[in-house]
Design a protein around this nucleic acid. Structure first.
Lengths: 238, 238, 238, 238
DNA sequence: AATGAATGAGTGTTCATTCAT
DNA sequence: TATGAATGAACACTCATTCAT
């Protein structure tokens, strides 16, 4: 009767539902990220969102619903924010590098929320876990497409694509998961740049390397400026 | 008075403390791994371990103590089981590959527990989190030493060692964290073998590649047999 | 942040807080008085008050809070009920006697609760004990003022006022504390009357004695009627 | 079958029972006095007494037994220590004063334990409370006898003996119960001396007053020296 | 006689969820 | 639609008591 992906609301006005949910989820992601799912109470979320506890139950069926949509919100951020960052970029190698760069940038902004996804996906009702995994897979596909284009264009040699994509994914996630160990060694720009050196460059063909070298020259200071930009706010999913 | 790493026991007999704690932790790791820290109750642990709830409090100060020692148990397993697997292996490149192989084998055996470490480290009292991280760092050092030996011996070119080690770590952990996505594509043996292709091979010098190729020839069926062995026990920390 | 005298409530409506706390404290004083602090459970209090256990924690921070306000309720009853009983009385000697009489009347009504104060003040958090003692001191002061007026008016000779006030206090409290031994020998009226004979009369000057004698003549039957009134309600703090 | 006053022991050797019980009760009185009955655990008592928890159950049936004998130990101390202090004293007025003095001295030594008796008698099994009250009554009788002798000897006028005895009792107990308020105003010697002024002197006949005056002259420095002696140790029942 | 490990019933407290207003 | 007071099941933890050694 109730499909796993559906979240019921007692309120009918669709626009209101959208606004209220966004308001509540913003609070939830912040608190879940900081304190974890189980140690965050519904009433803390209500307070943070500036609403009453009762209101939350007008827009979500239960606490699991709040977690579910919180995680979706985070994972969909990856999926939605990477493509626009690729829009202007044409060259396959540049697109791949930009995708990694974009992904890491977003992870950096949602650092705590990314950790949350690792911590709390198992706290979801079982039938919903796979839905969240679908979201992750869709993001992976973005990277996979970039990778495939490099190979298809002859910029990269044949590799185990599937596995390499997972290296890319874990590389990006590691910026959040292992931040405690990485932050002393790298800024974000350096991290991505060195990562490309380990996970992209070795597989490039001669002509692929030319592109990368050119790109590197061009973005040397871009990287620096972006690194400097990578601004304060964290753990905000929207 | 109470250092963060210390877990008090009301029982004085050291041997008994060791046995009972092992018995209780076995149950705790199993349940925490399957159900998560917060949804596992002390009384479930007691039932699983075949003791009374009260007994747990004779050997642990509180539930956080149980989690702490559970996580340490898991992380120390990595640290303790990798070195013996390297004992016989002399050649730097082989040692590096064997370390990756060993690490992945152990992760495979402790798959659920490895996920637990990612889920639940943040549930620990803050002052203990860093202790657990120390354990992880010590395991990383094992890999780093292997990597360094490869470079020092001229089998591998200069690379960003620190970052590459983290690629190794996330690669091994991914076998547990992303098992839902990887198991359909790879057996454990294939996974490690392909991983070496992506994370070791590209950085080898000519003479390093010779060693790797030889090793591959030698262990082709070894890999298969080990892969076949794999299914055995899981989520057992000892 | 939290001063010892402050008791937090999650409920904001001040009127409701007042009513609910009164309702819960009525139950608590009754049960604490009868069974003692430690043997009374929160859930007994909830049942007696006709509310859920959870509700108690909306109006009190913890069980200690309930005890604290229970004791304050009792001690403040003394302080608040004695002055109105003195309002009409002008003559110093009569005021002193009336104060003793009033105090004993109230103790009689709150007999069990008075015993509670002796039993359970030490069960309070240390920083609150002194607050309860302040309440007692304020009641003592009422007696002291009466005593001082007698001396100042020349109705009583110089005495160690401080100590005599404490004799008055223990005399009144003894009606509750030693009721098991006193009830067979005295009614309340007789008890007070004889007590005045021992603790007031001997210190009166000639003109003080005249007043006392006159008063005694006047209230002979009054005493009896009040004594007859006595049985009424007990252990009700409001 | 089991009389309220009986405390069973699994151990048969009477001498051993006596010694072990004394050892355990010493610890119990100390801890009960300081922390209260309910907040003191059997295992704390065992530790303080230097024995195992199991041993306590060889000499006492349950925790109530320990409290019962602890309270008896305290109350019997009054009853047993006052008479020897009166042994040498012949004159009725002096005997009365000495009794008060002795009682207060003992209360002072057992200050915490005296408070314990007030706090914890109601925690006893109901059928045992009256036994403890019997002990108190026997001590009261010591004072009553002294008072009666004064009146019989014409040193004191007729008074409500029963009530006056209770004033004496509460006066002595108050030194423990209200010590927080009295200690700033009086030393023990002054307290007793002034108390005699309020509770004995007013009722003396002319010839009684002569005795008291003489006694006062004699013991002026005695009082002081005893006050000075009133030594360190407290809350020790034996 | 003495130990102390083991038990498990019982308590204070929390918090997701409901519902009258 | 929105509130927040009220509920009560559930959990971590304690401790009197038992009993094998």
């Amino acid at each position: 009767m109730k499909s796993p992906g559906h979240v019921a609301s007692l309120v009918t006005d669709a626009k209101l539902v959208g606004e209220r949910r966004a308001q509540i989820l913003r609070a939830a992601v912040k608190l879940f990220s900081g304190e974890g799912y189980y140690t965050t109470t519904i009433s803390q979320i209500a307070r943070e969102a500036g609403v009453s506890t009762g209101l939350i139950y007008q827009y979500f069926g239960d606490k699991d619903d709040v977690l579910f949509l919180s995680l979706k919100l985070v994972l969909e951020t990856y999926e939605k924010e990477i493509p626009p960052r690729l829009a202007e970029v044409k060259h396959p190698v540049e697109r791949l590098c930009m995708a990694l760069w974009a992904y890491c940038t977003i992870v950096d902004r949602l650092r705590e929320a990314t950790v949350l996804a690792y911590r709390s996906t198992k706290s979801l009702r079982a039938d919903r876990r796979s839905l969240v995994k679908q979201d992750e897979l869709r993001t992976n596909r973005l990277l996979h497409d970039c990778l495939r284009a490099c190979i298809a264009g002859g910029y990269m040699r044949q590799v185990n694509e599937y596995l390499l994509v997972y290296q890319y994914v874990t590389f990006c996630h590691a910026w959040a998961l292992k931040h405690w160990a990485l932050r002393d060694k790298f800024g974000l720009g350096k991290y991505v740049s060195e990562g490309i050196g380990l996970l992209v460059e070795p597989f490039l063909t001669a002509k692929g390397r030319v592109t990368l070298a050119a790109m590197r020259r061009r973005t040397a200071n871009f990287t620096r400026s972006v690194t400097a930009t990578k601004p304060a706010k964290r753990a905000r999913a929207a």
